[in-house]
């Protein structure tokens, strides 16, 4: 049993250390939970395998029909590995906005807020555990699929590590955005449609199914100006590239978006807390 003791002294450092321990405790508990239901996670691999199979057929037909060895600078094998990386990010998403939405509408949030450790820290620990397990499993399934269908491609260890680090930062940004959507339940009845739109817009403008390098110029420029490309396309492209020239731009976009979204959601959370009312019963 994991326990979180004390508030870790006074001041910002003490509070931050305490929050970290809370996150760690929730992370460990939910990691064990994920491991207990690994079969359920494994079944999720069927979806990914079906998607990758269909997309591989599509891209194979496209390369064949175009009679080209490369499209937008990508070989067929690179496109399939690109899809593995982008699909792993998307299929590992955790739809916890629905839980926040329910907490807000039922008034359960009022009880959750008075628990020690903090509501957001608890969600973040749980999110991180679930997301990382799903992401690792998706990479495993996708990697095996890509190896069997198009074979291995040369990938440098440094671009791979930096790309995976960028994916972790992107997951943090995704958490902040989904938290913001879930807290929207303080103002609207149901946030599920907003979450659905968020996921779909990020999929298209993030270059999930088509690398952004293959977008028409104008739409490609718009996509690059938004954070979704840095969250989905950026890390995948980085892993497939031979150099690190795109690293500063990618991390600037991710960091800037995280600071902006974090500030807005922090403000939203503050306003939302003042609107909390508990239901009787």
């Amino acid at each position: 049993m994991t326990s979180v003791r004390g508030r870790g002294g006074r001041g910002v450092v003490g509070i931050a250390a305490y929050r970290m321990r809370v996150i760690q405790a929730y992370f460990v508990v939910h990691l064990r939970d994920q491991m207990a239901y690994l079969g359920e996670v494994a079944l999720g691999g069927i979806i990914l395998a079906v998607l990758l199979f269909v997309l591989t057929q599509l891209w194979q037909a496209t390369f064949r029909f175009q009679g080209a060895h490369t499209l937008g600078g990508y070989t067929l094998a690179q496109v399939i590995w690109y899809l593995v990386l982008t699909e792993a990010f998307i299929t590992s998403r955790v739809a916890f906005a629905r839980k926040i939405d329910t907490d807000v509408r039922t008034g359960d949030l009022a009880y959750a807020l008075v628990r020690p450790g903090g509501y957001v820290s608890a969600h973040f620990g749980a999110y991180l555990a679930e997301r990382l397990v799903r992401f690792a499993f998706a990479l495993l399934v996708g990697g095996v699929f890509a190896l069997l269908s198009v074979g291995a491609i040369p990938v440098g260890p440094v671009p791979l590590l930096v790309g995976l680090t960028a994916s972790l930062v992107a997951m943090l940004l995704d958490f902040v955005m989904v938290l913001g959507i879930g807290l929207g339940a303080f103002w609207i009845e149901d946030t599920s449609s907003i979450y659905l739109i968020y996921t779909r817009v990020s999929m298209i403008l993030g270059g999930l199914l088509i690398p952004i390098d293959l977008f028409p110029d104008t739409i490609g420029a718009i996509a690059r100006a938004l954070p979704f490309a840095a969250m989905i396309h950026g890390p995948a492209r980085l892993v497939l590239s031979s150099g690190l020239a795109e690293v500063p731009g990618l991390f600037t976009m991710l960091g800037g978006s995280l600071a902006l979204a974090g500030g807005l959601v922090w403000w939203e959370y503050g306003v939302a807390r003042r609107r909390v009312t508990a239901q009787g019963g």
Binding site: I188, E189, D190, S192, S193, I194, L196, I197, R200, V201, M203, I204, L209, I210, F215, P216, I219
Partner: peptide, 21 residues
């Protein structure tokens, strides 16, 4: 209406994907 609109936008985005393609 938000559920209906959300699904219309969801489907429209898939058609946008195909348009891009």
């Amino acid at each position: 209406f938000s559920a209906v609109l959300g699904m219309v936008i969801n489907d429209a985005i898939w058609v946008v994907f195909w348009w891009l393609f």
